[in-house]
Computed example of a mutant assay.
Amino acid sequence: MTWTEERVTADDGVRLWTARAGQGEPLVLCHGGPGLWDMFDGVGGELADRATVIRWDQRGCGRSQRGEGPWTTERFVADLDAVRDRFGRPGVALLGHSWGAQLALGYALAHPERVSTLVYVSGTGIGPDADWHPDYRRNFLARLGDHPERLARWRELTGRRLFTDQEARERAVLQWSVEFEDRDRALEHAGRMADPWFGVATECGKVLNEERKRLWGTPALYTACESLDVPVVIVDGARDIRPRSAVDSLERALPRVRRVTLPTAGHLPWVEDPDGFRAAVATAIH
């Protein structure tokens, strides 16, 4: 698949990396993190026979202009609107994964008239962190502990105050390996996520995660979701180490929602159930 790369300038002058391919109605992909970069190259190409797929690196991350805040959902929503405005008319489809699912939901709440449909993949719902993070932490340590040497090395690297770039990549690959149900291929899958390696924007991730802790789980968020007049498809991997019950809060609140659970997939369902994932997205965007 050949991607056409372009820089989109946000309203405050920050330049955002984008890539597009395919034909048809636009489908904008919002990557996870926060602080990471677009990793949708493969699955984005597979969706390009159904839509004009638009990928982008969020502010301060990956191939976009680095080190530029502010790190707020409001600012990231404005950046996403700049990408949408460049490539699509009002009424684009959005697909967000993990943190990107939270961002895409935030955009739909802010601009429902500009979203035709929302595909919410592997998010953690709209409740407080207490709904999911303690179980996630336990599951993380248990799954990484399937290989004690990997857990020991991850702990060693995590305990350091300074990393080389190579050590940062090694730590990320070990951490990301827990996202896959197939333990024999977990490091292979995680290594593919880190290739190419752009380095994690740690300050971005820290600030946005703190913002989520303050704002998620509030009555105002529940009320906003109850009024959202946009069709939403929630896509889960049943083997995600983040408890899927956390997403029930969002499913209960939304008036126009359908949920697809892929029983053999983890946090990146397009990797472990590509056919099921493509089918779920296809029903959402057509």
Rank of each mutant, 00 (worst) to 15 (best):
G145P: 02
V200H: 14
A194I: 15
G69C: 14
L157T: 05
T9G: 05
I234V: 09
T202Y: 05
G106K: 06
H111F: 13
V119H: 12
F198E: 03
V115C: 02
R259P: 09
G91D: 00
D38T: 12
P219C: 02
W99R: 01
E179I: 07
H267W: 11
N139H: 01
G96H: 04
T18R: 13
P255M: 15
Q102F: 00
E167M: 11
D229E: 02
G145Y: 00
F198V: 02
R278Q: 04
A279E: 08
G33H: 09
D165N: 02
V77Y: 04
L80P: 11
R214W: 07
G42Q: 10
W3Q: 12
V43K: 09
V230R: 00
D129I: 07
C204G: 15
I241N: 06
D131N: 03
D195K: 10
G88Y: 01
P70T: 14
R171Y: 07
V173Q: 00
A201L: 13
A110S: 01
R258A: 09
V8Q: 04
A194V: 11
A78L: 12
R242V: 09
H97P: 02
V207L: 13
G159H: 07
G159N: 08
G62Q: 07
I234Q: 05
D229R: 01
R212T: 00
S249P: 03
R15C: 11
P231R: 01
W17V: 15
L95N: 04
F277E: 11
V200S: 07
V232D: 02
F198W: 05
R192I: 09
R244D: 04
G62E: 07
F163G: 15
W270I: 05
M1P: 13
A93F: 04
